[in-house]
């Protein structure tokens, strides 16, 4: 049903068509839950929150795995091998890993498409800027979009570097320990990686808290707990990930 445009002078601009189902058509069939989620800004944010949390869970596991590098090549490479055999004998070799990969790709794609569509919408909603500029919101909030783009580019490089070895200078399949040390022995490898990890930290700091709000977990009393948790997660992940290139650069790991 369309809510009538009752104010005559707004006729000059195209009237918003209204998707509301108030009153008379209230008993009509409503669209499916998936449709409702995908069509609404709140729904898209929910998709971003859920996919973001999936990726965040993965990051925590990934970071913990990375730290195995401090226990030497044996343990690190062994862990890498286990990732391929996990789920056996129920699952075939590497199946579990592929399931995780497919899930992650789906999460990244949904997160990215939602972010792109929402950003386009946001920019359209505020076409004119204020003449009087002033600093707004926190650094993490303002860097969400750029941070997201940096992370997307980084993921591509990261996979080509350490998963497929396409852009790696001396990649050897099955020897992740050596591959990692080689990557962090180049200046650009460190710069790219550390930049991306910092962007990830900021992204997680606002993203985690933001996801909690979107999923309706946040309220006035829980706000401090959520903010502290977001800061702690961001700090632990950043430190955990950065520790590897720093260890390689300082020779702690070689």
């Amino acid at each position: 049903m369309k809510i009538s445009q009752t104010i005559s002078w707004t006729d000059r601009r195209p009237a918003p068509t209204v998707v509301s189902m108030a009153l008379a058509t209230r008993t009509d069939r409503r669209p499916s839950m998936t449709r409702t989620l995908w069509d609404s800004t709140v729904g898209k944010k929910t998709i971003m929150a859920v996919t973001g949390l999936i990726m965040l869970g993965y990051l925590v596991a990934h970071m913990v795995g990375n730290l195995k590098i401090f226990f030497g090549p044996g343990e690190f490479d062994g862990y890498a091998h286990w990732l391929r055999t996990m789920g056996e004998p129920i699952l075939h070799y590497e199946w579990a890993l592929w399931i995780v990969r497919v899930g992650l790709v789906a999460a990244v794609v949904l997160h990215g498409i939602s972010a792109y569509q929402l950003s386009r919408r946001d920019i359209r909603a505020r076409p004119a800027k204020y003449v009087h500029k002033r600093r707004r919101a926190s650094y993490a909030t303002r860097t969400m979009r750029w941070g997201g783009i940096i992370l997307a580019l980084f993921i591509v490089w990261h996979i080509l570097d350490l998963t497929t070895g396409t852009v790696h200078t001396s990649f050897e399949a099955g020897h992740p320990y050596q591959n990692v040390i080689d990557t962090f022995s180049t200046w650009y490898g460190n710069v790219i990686y550390i930049t991306a990890v910092l962007a990830m930290g900021l992204h997680v700091q606002h993203g985690f808290w933001s996801a909690a709000q979107t999923l309706g977990v946040g309220n006035a009393t829980r706000d401090r707990v959520l903010k502290t948790l977001a800061n702690a997660l961001a700090a632990v992940l950043t430190l955990g990930f950065v520790s590897v290139p720093v260890a390689v650069m300082t020779g702690v790991v070689s």
Partner: peptide, 15 residues
Amino acid sequence: SRQIATGGVELHART
């Protein structure tokens, strides 16, 4: 507002 939505009230604001 509920009546405006049903069309029972035709509102002219800024008039």
